[in-house]
């Protein structure tokens, strides 16, 4: 059994150490908010935080997450940045099909946690690893700026 802390709770999982964290979250823990998109870290749909740092869970082996704090879309609302980002996503009606949005929100939350007033270039750098096939990029950009502004006022 390997122990990891997911959204503040300690979880024991029996999966092989080489199993990608994505499939541990989904198939072992039934936490389906984290999405499978490409399996090779090309789309960002599977983004989670390991000790606050955004990683692609589809290429992160369980062994690399052992003992670390894993934050997923199900838990990001408990963080200051995550709460602001989710609220901004709702205010701006960002999602269309919605499939990529967990990953988008995780990347955006990590950006805002370390950069309270991201520029367009900062947003490009932090968000260009996340593909949205519905093309909601402009709404994502608007929502990130909205989240930054609301967090500043809070």
């Amino acid at each position: 059994m390997i122990s990891l802390v997911v959204n503040g709770k300690t979880r024991e999982v029996g999966a092989a150490p080489g199993t990608p964290l994505l499939w541990v979250l989904r198939d072992s823990l039934r936490m389906t908010g984290t999405k499978f998109g490409c399996g090779i870290a090309q789309c960002g749909a599977c983004t989670v935080h390991l000790d606050g740092v955004p990683v692609r869970s589809c290429v992160t082996p369980l062994s690399a997450a052992a003992g670390k704090k894993v934050t997923t879309i199900e838990g990001i609302g408990a963080t200051r940045a995550g709460k602001a980002v989710q609220a901004a996503w709702m205010r701006n009606d960002v999602p269309q099909c919605g499939y990529c949005q967990s990953g988008q929100i995780m990347s955006a939350s990590a950006l805002l946690a370390k950069n309270r007033a991201p520029s367009d270039a900062d947003i490009d750098a932090a968000m260009s690893g996340n593909v949205c096939r519905c093309g909601t990029y402009n709404q994502i950009r608007t929502a990130i700026k909205d989240a930054a502004a609301s967090a500043k006022g809070a």
Partner: peptide, 27 residues
Amino acid sequence: TKRLDTVAKSTGRAKFGLDVYLPGMLT
């Protein structure tokens, strides 16, 4: 008028086909 699916799709709660799990299911 806001979309009715925005909250589910901003919180990871929206269920897509891949999110279905049944007892005894094989992948």
